[in-house]
C-alpha cells in the first residue's frame, strides 16, 4: 500500500530553484510574499477570537477548578472565577505526587526521545527521500506500515521483555521503545524530498564530500525547520505518554503522567487537587509554548509538509 503516493510532493509543487549560496532555498520563494495578501476584516477577527476562546477556555477552566475546594466544586452552578485555594491545591498536588522527581524524569525522558527521534528520522528520511538503494520502496512501505500497529497490545510482550532485562521502573524502559518513530521518518521524508534540491547534494559530492559531510553541511541546514517541528511534536507526545509508562514505571521513579495517577490520595479524592495536578502536568509545556511560541510556530510555518 503505497501510502506515500498521495503525499509525494513531486507531483505538484514545482521543483525549487537551488539556492545559489547553498542556504535554505526556501527563502527564494518567500521573497514575493507580501504582494497581494488579503487583509483581515472584522469578521475574520471575530471568528478567530471565537476559536481562540474555545481553544483556551478548557485550560483556563482547569486553572479555575484547581483553585477551589472539593465542596465548592460540588456546588451548582460551577465556579467561574478563581478561588483562594490555587496555591494550596498546587502545593498538595506537588507534594503528594512526587512531582519534582517526575518533572525531572519527564524532561529527561522526553528530551532523550526527542533528540534521538529527530536525529534518526532525519537520517532515514533523507535516505528515503534522496538516496537510491535496493528495496527502498519496500522498506518505506514497511515504515509506514508500522504506524498502523495498534499500540495498546504491545504492552504485554514489551513488558515481558523489559522485565527479562530487569528494566522495570528504570527510565530506559520508557525511553528505548520510543527512540524512533515511523511518523517521524515519514514526516522528514515528505519534507526533504521536496525541500532539498538534488543539485545541492550533487554539488557537494563534486566537491568531494562524503555522506556524513553531505548530511552535516547540506541536509541538516535545509532540514532544520522540519526538525524543529518534529522535535516539538515528539516532545509533546513523549511528555503526555501514559499507557506504557504506567505499566513500566512505578511512582518511586515516575514520569509526570504516572505521578498524576497517584493524586486521588487522602481519604477522599479531591477534585481541586486532581485539577491542580492536571495543570502542573500541562503548565511546563504551556510555558514553553509561551516562550518559544513564535519560534515553534515559525518553524511550523517554514517546515510544514507542503506536499
Amino acid at each position: 500500500m503505497t501510502l506515500s503516493a498521495p503525499v509525494t510532493p513531486e507531483t505538484t509543487t514545482p521543483v525549487l530553484p537551488p539556492g545559489d549560496d547553498g542556504g535554505p532555498p526556501r527563502r527564494v520563494k518567500r521573497g514575493g510574499k507580501a504582494g497581494k495578501q488579503l487583509r483581515a476584516g472584522w469578521l475574520t477577527y471575530t471568528i478567530l477570537a471565537i476559536f481562540t476562546f474555545g481553544s483556551l477556555f478548557p485550560l483556563v477552566w482547569t486553572a479555575i477548578a484547581a483553585s477551589h475546594s472539593n465542596a465548592r466544586l460540588a456546588q451548582s452552578p460551577p465556579p467561574f472565577s478563581f478561588g483562594d485555594r490555587l496555591w494550596h491545591n498546587l502545593d498538595q498536588a506537588w507534594n503528594t505526587a512526587n512531582m519534582g522527581k517526575a518533572l525531572f524524569n519527564t524532561v529527561f525522558v522526553a528530551g532523550t526521545i526527542t533528540v534521538s527521534t529527530v536525529l534518526f528520522a532525519t537520517l532515514a528520511g533523507f535516505a528515503f527521500a534522496k538516496l537510491r538503494f535496493r528495496a527502498k520502496n519496500l522498506l518505506l512501505l514497511l515504515v509506514i506500515g508500522t504506524m498502523m500497529v495498534p499500540p495498546q497490545l504491545s504492552v504485554v510482550p514489551l513488558f515481558m521483555a523489559i522485565a527479562e532485562l530487569g528494566w522495570t521502573n528504570h527510565l530506559q524502559a520508557v525511553i528505548l521503545p520510543m527512540m524512533v518513530s515511523a511518523f517521524g521518518v515519514f514526516f522528514m521524508r515528505q519534507y526533504l524530498v521536496q525541500a532539498l534540491p538534488t543539485e545541492l547534494i550533487e554539488a557537494a559530492r563534486m566537491d568531494g564530500a562524503n555522506s556524513l559531510r553531505v548530511v552535516w553541511h547540506v541536509v541538516l541546514p535545509v532540514a532544520r525547520p522540519a526538525m524543529a517541528v518534529l522535535a516539538m511534536l515528539t516532545f509533546v507526545m513523549a511528555w503526555n505518554e501514559f499507557f506504557w509508562p504506567i505499566i513500566a514505571l512505578t511512582q518511586q521513579n515516575p514520569t509526570v503522567q504516572v505521578a498524576l495517577t497517584g493524586l486521588g490520595r487522602g481519604y477522599v479524592p479531591d477534585q481541586g487537587v486532581i485539577m491542580a495536578g492536571a495543570l502542573l502536568g500541562t503548565l511546563p509545556l504551556l510555558i514553553a509554548f509561551a516562550i518559544f511560541g513564535k519560534q515553534i510556530v515559525g518553524g511550523i510555518m517554514q517546515g510544514a509538509l507542503k506536499g
Binding site: W239, N240, T282, L286, F289, G293, K294
Partner: peptide
Amino acid sequence: VAMLTPYATS
C-alpha cells in the same frame, strides 16, 4: 500559539 495550546494538553 493560542490555537496550538490544546495540542499540548494531555
